[in-house]
Design a protein around this nucleic acid. Structure first.
Lengths: 326, 326
DNA sequence: CCCTGCAACTTGAACGATCCAATGATGCAC
DNA sequence: GTGCATCATTGGATCGTTCAAGTTGCAGGG
């Protein structure tokens, strides 16, 4: 077992004081060129790495960020979080931070966990996913002065805090345009019940694009909770209409899959580009998850390392992955 | 902003010394009943929680475990890791530990990350997933005296370290029995090229069950890398035989999906019970992931909190989730 | 009565880093 | 040569916790 290498070991080895070693690491510019080089050589030779716990005690900064890992609700959208997490971890490491996971059972429980993590691990910040209207979690964090970024915008007040989001409407608009270009005129939309910010946004993109092409969207949309059976149900309902749609834009791959099974024909487009879509050849709107994750980390670390003033918003463009269904 | 509550605050409030508070937390039995209660009340009243960084400095234990998050290789099996991670985080929290993520690009890079994490965060242990023959990572960890558990056994030497695994052979055996019970006699197996422990194990379960039922497995198996096209290719090859199989047991849902698409009929069983299987109604062998995660944490924390002697192995039974394809 | 032993609790030091104030070295002008 | 400003470098204190050693009070044996 190798001996423990502390800042004192390095200092001794480079024949300087501890403080000088610390300066080389934290404010290199105030150390003379030659001394700095000697210290850096000692650090490399001994394989020294600063002990985060000790650093944290003094500075109050743990270089730890936390993200909630959800219990993979309906199983289909889990992979979105998965890819996002990988991006976060990667980007965080590049910025000198590490990602810690936590689970929670509802917003109240999550806030209790915030408190716990802050008190015992001195977390530097949080990345929240899936915000909804008037999210209590964001208010709690803001109130306690805890830095955080959400992936997903606060629909009631866009500039209340920093966030990164994907332009959902642009995604469904792209999907709708694609269907129009391939000759469809009556295009249905299968989404979630009105009231969810993301769902409404996705419906909007479809609706606006229809109107922009002089197509009447009235009566062509349905809403249901996410799921394959629900998607099928909505599709059947639309297909039973006198002037039934010949193509469908859906708010999720689950709904799209349902529509496909209900005999929605071959013109169906989903959302999220999940593994399911890749597997069955479903055309789907893809979110730039690694990019979104990287931007989340950027916003957080900028806030942590620089001047904590103001909030920043980032809206990313999704892209359409064309496969066999459109 | 609330004042910082330290052990000294609690001590003052309960009119005892810091050490007595520490004893109440770490060795309650040596503190007098009445004193203990007074201290516990003070802790509750002030909302005190021990600072892990300070504790770690003294004890060398961070109560942090690390898991690698992979870049979702082929997209289909990513959700397995996702569900496993959730289970880990949950079980770890219950045992007083937290889970930290890291990424790595290959085994060499992962070992460098081990070194880094140990030096700067003083991690207590690692959970490794996806071990292969003669895994260099496990040797490095063992050599450096770092506690770890793998999800997946070391195929070359079963008792070299602690692990939790799912009985793959039992899974494919169950799948094969199911197909035999529903009247099939010529059952093909589509798996991975020989040489991977997991793949060979899954092939074994099929082979043994066939023989146990006086069915000849010879010539009925194919091997290819994981993926839908590969699965389709293998299925086509088998179906072109003079006495073609009427059903397929597959080593993964991806391969199974390929077999289905190649016209493998309606009798196809996959492995892993991924969202894709759930989505398309594919019968699949399901791994008890939350349970496996909990056992990993058990093994690790037992080792950390108790006497670090010997290794333990846990083999869990998978279950067959019957849907529409078998 | 003193000593021993034990239980219950207190005090001082240490973990490894950073912050702060003070010291030493250097150059330059007078 | 002395004074002074400037800057690199040093030593000591500190963060919050636990470990090791020490103190106190009390019961029981000789």
């Amino acid at each position: 077992m190798a001996e423990k290498v502390t800042i004192a070991t390095v200092a001794h080895h480079a024949r300087v004081s501890r403080q000088t070693v610390s300066n080389v690491l934290n404010s290199p510019h105030i150390v003379r060129e030659e001394t700095r080089r000697r210290v850096e050589e000692a650090i490399a030779a001994l394989g020294y790495r600063a002990n985060q716990a000790a650093r944290q005690m003094r500075t109050g900064r743990s270089h730890l960020l936390a993200v909630r890992i959800e219990p993979t609700r309906d199983g289909i959208n889990g992979s979105v979080l998965d890819r996002f997490l990988h991006g976060l971890t990667f980007a965080a490491a590049a910025a000198g931070y590490r990602v810690m996971l936590y689970t929670a059972d509802g917003d109240g429980d999550e806030i209790k966990t915030f408190d716990d993590l802050l008190a015992s691990y001195d977390l530097d910040g949080f990345v929240l996913t899936g915000t909804d209207h008037g999210d209590v979690r964001t208010f709690w964090l803001a109130e306690h002065g805890v830095p955080f970024v959400t992936f997903g915008r606060p629909w009631d007040a866009p500039e209340r805090h920093s966030w990164v989001d994907v332009d959902n409407a642009a995604g469904t608009a792209q999907a709708t345009r694609r269907l129009i270009e391939t000759g469809h005129r009556r295009i249905g939309f299968i989404g979630w019940p009105a009231g969810s910010g993301v769902g409404d946004d996705r419906r909007d993109g479809w609706q606006r694009t229809m109107k922009a092409h002089d197509l009447d969207p009235a009566g062509l949309d349905r809403g249901a909770d996410d799921g394959i059976p629900q998607g099928a149900e909505c599709a059947r309902d639309l297909l039973a209409m006198p002037d039934a749609p010949t193509a469908f834009v859906c708010a999720s791959d689950s709904l799209a899959l349902g529509a496909l099974r209900a005999g929605g024909g071959s013109a169906v487009i989903g959302f999220d580009d999940t593994p399911v879509a890749q597997a069955i050849g479903l055309t789907s709107v893809s979110q730039p998850l690694p990019d979104a994750a990287a931007r989340c980390i950027d916003l957080l670390t900028d806030h942590l390392d620089g001047d904590p003033v103001g909030t920043t918003q980032v809206l990313l463009q999704p892209s359409l992955v064309v496969r066999t269904t459109a």
